[in-house]
Structure formats: structure tokens, C-alpha cells
């Protein structure tokens, strides 16, 4: 029992918990800033919501309903209390509760993020370890070039390149959407692959995977290149450390050393970057979803932004912030699991 208590205690002491609380507070601060910005910007939200032809009395009533005549901090109070009840206000684009919209579009983005994360992590581990364990090799040189290309080419350009080659020239992968026409999957979780498996529709599952590949790659490649390089340089450092050479001197085969004993300490320095990249996917997905016509959060978010739908914008910002924060907390936790020094607190 004592050890479990110690783990709990150290989790708290190692600031993961405190950081989570702090970032949630920051998020609240952010909502205040965005809210203020949205209210001081010229333009009457009520008038914009109801359109230019609505009679003045109705606009006035609506204004009262939204507490728009009260001082800004009172408005913020009302808005905040609504927020805690899950009410973000009515979207000007869809005329529905913003949270309903988000619930509809978010799963497609989450599914994309999930696959990008898988590709990204697997690719990073394999590329980084292989090139880091043999610095100066051909693979290492190739990774160097790939890294540079990866850093310099933004995700939306990757998207265009991949779409052009694999959808239009070669024609192996579909260019847009989540499923081929004619294939439908009942909505359970909103993640098409999961729903397809849950209903035993294997054909739909393969089709969904097929649609996921290009957008996932577009999002994964750039970040993967950078992460692999960070992992590589950590590996290069670690394979020359005495604790790796010691095992080498005991005749442990290279693959076990590189993929286990050198990788684990190296990965600790790479995880924060991977975590930040995966958390940022919620933003980067915007660009790639546009190209692949992916019915994700960008579809709602960009429309809201272009139409100046304030409730929608604030909703998207808060949602993105929440996902970002939660992902970062998860990364912190994983880091504590991997690196025992963080768990027990090194003397």
C-alpha cells in the first residue's frame, strides 16, 4: 500500500497534477481574453445574429436575452455559467447549439489525429533508432535529407503532393471524404473505423482505412521527420554512454541494445516534442482537412471564422485548448512512467 501512496505522492510532487490544474486555469484566462476581444470588436452580435432586416425591437429583446446591455464582466459571468452547463451559445452558421456542432464534427478529426499519432510514433521510433544507432550510414544520410524536406514543407503542401501523386496520377488512394460513396456505417462513436468494426462491417473498415492513409501521412510526415531527428541525436549520444557500452561489452546483440537499452533513455527527450506535435494536430488538421474535404472540425471551425460566428469561434478555441491541454497532461504522465527518475525524484 505504501508504494502506491508513494506513486500518488510523487505524481503530485512531480508537477504533472499541478501543471494540469495550471493549464486549465490558463484556458479559463484564454476564454476571458477571447471573450473580451469578441465583445469589444465593432459590430453588434445581436444584429449580426438576426440579420440586417430584423426589426429593431426584436434585436433589442435578443440583446437583453443575451445580457448584451450589461457590463462586460456580467456578460462574462453569464457566459461562464452557461459554459459549465455545456452551453456555448447558438452558432450563427448552423443555428444550433455550438456544442452540438462540435460533437458532430469532432470525431472525424479525432479519428484522423489517432491515426496520425500511430503513424508518427511508429515512424519516429523506427527511423530515429535505425539512423541514430549507425550515425553516418546511408540511412542516416537519407534521414537527414528527409528531415530537412520535412521541416520545410508544411502539412498542406504534403497533402497536395500526396493527393496529386497517389490519387490523381497513380490512383491508388481516394482523394477526398471518409468513405466511398455507397458505403455507410451507423454512427456509434463517430470514429468510422471503430464503428465499422463494431458492426462487423469489414469492407467499410478497410475502406475507411484506405481513406485515412493520405491525410494521415500528410499530417505525420513533417512532424515525424523532426521527431526522428531529435530521437536520432539523443540516440547518438546514448550509444556512446558507458551504460550502453557496458552492455555491448557483455555481448548483448546490437538490436536489443539499440531498440531497448539505448532507445528508452533517448525516447524520454523525444516524448515532449512528440506530445506537443500530437496536441497541435487539432490545429494542423485544419489545413489538411480542407484539402481532403474531411468532414472534421475544420469544416465547422473555418466556416465559423469566415462568417465571424463568435460563439462558434470561442467554442472551437476552447475545444482545441481542452484537447491540447489534455494531450499535454497525458504526455507528462507517460513521461513519468518511462523515466523512473521523474517518478521517484532523483537525489
Amino acid at each position: 500500500m505504501k508504494s502506491r501512496f508513494n506513486v500518488l505522492k510523487s505524481v503530485y510532487e512531480n508537477t504533472v497534477f499541478r501543471r494540469a490544474v495550471l493549464s486549465l486555469l490558463s484556458l479559463l484566462g484564454l476564454s476571458l481574453i477571447i471573450f473580451t476581444l469578441a465583445r469589444i470588436v465593432p459590430g453588434d452580435p445581436a444584429r449580426m445574429a438576426l440579420g440586417p432586416r430584423a426589426p429593431e425591437e426584436i434585436v433589442q429583446k435578443y440583446r437583453e436575452m443575451l445580457h448584451l446591455n450589461e457590463p462586460i464582466y456580467v456578460q462574462y459571468y453569464y457566459w461562464l455559467t452557461n459554459l459549465f452547463q455545456g452551453k456555448l451559445g447558438i452558432s450563427l452558421t448552423s443555428f444550433r447549439e455550438v456544442s452540438v456542432d462540435i460533437a458532430e464534427f469532432l470525431p472525424a478529426t479525432l479519428e484522423l489525429m489517432l491515426f496520425v499519432a500511430i503513424i508518427q510514433i511508429a515512424g519516429t521510433l523506427i527511423l530515429g533508432t535505425l539512423s541514430g544507432s549507425k550515425p553516418g550510414s546511408i540511412l542516416d544520410g537519407a534521414l537527414r535529407v528527409f528531415t530537412y524536406v520535412g521541416i520545410c514543407v508544411p502539412a498542406f503542401v504534403w497533402g497536395l503532393i500526396l493527393q496529386f501523386i497517389f490519387s490523381y496520377v497513380v490512383g491508388v488512394f481516394p482523394a477526398t471524404e471518409r468513405l466511398s460513396p455507397g458505403i455507410t456505417v451507423p454512427r456509434i462513436t463517430g470514429l468510422v473505423t471503430v464503428d465499422a468494426l463494431a458492426t462487423g462491417n469489414f469492407r467499410a473498415f478497410v475502406d475507411a482505412l484506405w481513406h485515412l492513409i493520405l491525410p494521415s501521412l500528410a499530417l505525420a510526415l513533417g512532424a515525424m521527420a523532426q521527431e526522428a531527428r531529435i530521437l536520432r541525436s539523443a540516440m547518438v549520444e546514448n550509444i556512446n554512454k558507458d551504460y550502453v557500452l557496458t552492455l555491448l561489452s557483455h555481448g548483448i546483440p546490437g538490436y536489443r541494445i539499440y531498440f531497448k537499452y539505448a532507445l528508452k533513455p533517448s525516447v524520454a527527450s523525444t516524448i515532449p516534442v512528440i506530445g506537443l506535435d500530437i496536441a497541435s494536430l487539432i490545429a494542423n488538421a485544419f489545413m489538411v482537412e480542407v484539402i481532403f474535404n474531411w468532414p472534421g472540425i475544420s469544416k465547422f471551425g473555418i466556416t465559423a471564422m469566415l462568417k465571424k460566428d463568435l460563439n462558434g469561434i470561442v467554442g472551437v478555441v476552447l475545444m482545441a485548448g481542452l484537447i491540447y491541454t489534455v494531450t499535454n497532461v497525458i504526455v507528462d504522465l507517460i513521461l513519468t512512467i518511462i523515466d523512473p527518475r521523474l517518478r521517484y525524484g532523483e537525489k
Binding site: 554512454k241 558507458d242 551504460y243 550502453v244 557496458t246 552492455l247 537499452y261 528508452k264 533513455p265 524520454a268 518511462i338 523515466d339 523512473p340 527518475r341
Partner: peptide, 8 residues
């Protein structure tokens, strides 16, 4: 330096 810090 001779023992790996992240393994028992």
C-alpha cells in the same frame, strides 16, 4: 555512468 538510469 555505467548503469542505465531508466532500467532496474
Amino acid at each position: 555512468a555505467a548503469l542505465n538510469p531508466v532500467f532496474t
